[in-house]
């Protein structure tokens, strides 16, 4: 896969006949490096991307060698070991009124059984994650990547230090 094709894939612009080939084909070993290249070229910050974490979010290594979660707008969510949601802004849809802003009254959940939590980036106000959970449910720590093992055991090379 070349850079332009991957860029189209990321943007959802790859025509179906090409996307189908990608789906059905063998996975290219070089995909990850190419992926990082494409994503790194798109972000305005200078830090090296270690691992894409989700739409807008990246694990990067900063100048002092710390691994932090960063939004493509530049907002920093803190160390990767901590749930990035702890540095987000939150809206909880826990009433009929708030749920019915976006769902028909017949289509929503019952807020006494479940609420919607919207986690935003305080830098650019992108919606980064939605949780549907009962009131009082611990915030989900969606993904705690083992970055050292990933680079060493899966990619067979050391983690970039800066």
């Amino acid at each position: 896969m070349d850079q332009a094709t991957l860029a189209d894939l990321i943007d959802g612009k790859l025509p179906w006949h090409q996307l189908k080939e990608v789906l059905s084909g063998n996975k290219d070993i070089a995909r990850f490096d190419l992926y990082i290249e494409v994503l790194q070229s798109r972000v305005s910050f200078k830090e090296t991307i270690l691992l894409p974490l989700g739409e807008h979010l990246y694990v990067v290594v900063d100048a002092s060698g710390r691994r932090i979660v960063k939004c493509d707008c530049g907002y920093e969510f803190g160390p990767v070991e901590r749930n990035w949601k702890c540095a987000s802004a939150v809206l909880v849809r826990d009433s009929d009124e708030l749920l019915e802003e976006i769902y028909d009254p017949w289509n929503r959940c019952d807020p006494s059984w479940e609420e919607l939590r919207e986690f935003y980036c305080p830098g650019c106000w992108s919606l980064l994650e939605v949780e549907a959970a009962p009131p009082g449910y611990p915030v989900m720590f969606d993904f705690q990547p083992d970055i050292d093992t990933f680079y060493q055991e899966y990619l067979g090379r050391p983690v970039p230090r800066s």
């Binding site: 996975k27 549907a132 009962p134 989900m140 720590f141 969606d142 993904f143 705690q144 990547p145 093992t149």
Partner: peptide, 15 residues
Amino acid sequence: ERLVPGIYETASFFD
């Protein structure tokens, strides 16, 4: 080939 080592968490519900 396709995943990243680590811990992944979520939860689902049914009434």
